[in-house]
Amino acid sequence: MTQHLLQLSGVTKSFGSNHVLRGVDIDVAPGKSLVVLGGSGSGKSVILKNTLGLMTPDAGKIYFDGKDVTRDQGKARDAMRARIGMLFQSAALFDSLTIWENVAFRLLNADGMKRKDAKEHAIATMKQVRLGSDVADLTPAEISGGMQKRVGLARAIASKPDLIFFDEPTTGLDPITADAINDLIIEQTKALGAAAVSITHDMASARKIADEIAFLFDGKIIWRGPAADIDHSGNEYVDQFVNGRAEGPIQPAL
């Protein structure tokens, strides 16, 4: 059996009477790319937030690199986060800081790198995601949505993580920009040899970046398999989602 880099086992999370996760099992091997598919509001972001310790699961276990991190706090939690990069759905750039300070945020603050070195490092990382040094001193409000995603990606890979989370990396982008982001995700995770967990409801993106696909429905992973099998999963829920039909076992979230 291969050693998992990340493993979730029976994770549940409720908000009051809203039982969002009802026992989620996920595992990712080092260097592999897993895509979690699911409808809007199905709890995809909640999975990532529980894993990063931004929320605490009600039950279940989360293992990172073989170690139980479910309820880690303080230094132990920071040690885990230092090895994980995250691209947020809204990019979540710090709007009071410049682009390069955003990219170098961990280096400047947690790692205490000198500003001059951090800026050089940030500009080198920005180059990897095709951002020129001319935007380094702008603020997030001064650049486009597609560029903000690139900055978010640069920030996520700046400290060379072993695992990267992508929360709906292509949502809100036009198809061409979205495809460019997909290419960058593949290229950069490969270059780092990092594992990736991406969350999306964009089928084109999922097909492109996934080694494996897991389907989240009703708080559980109800199907999982190689990306190539997604069109003949034999699961009527997956089929309905993949083909984007309103009729089927899944009720549209209206």
């Binding site: 937030k49 990063l52 931004l54 986060r81 979540a92 710090f94 945020f105 603050n109 947690a110």
Partner: peptide
Amino acid sequence: QIDALKTLS
């Protein structure tokens, strides 16, 4: 952004 702060330690 607050979640992002935490993930960046």
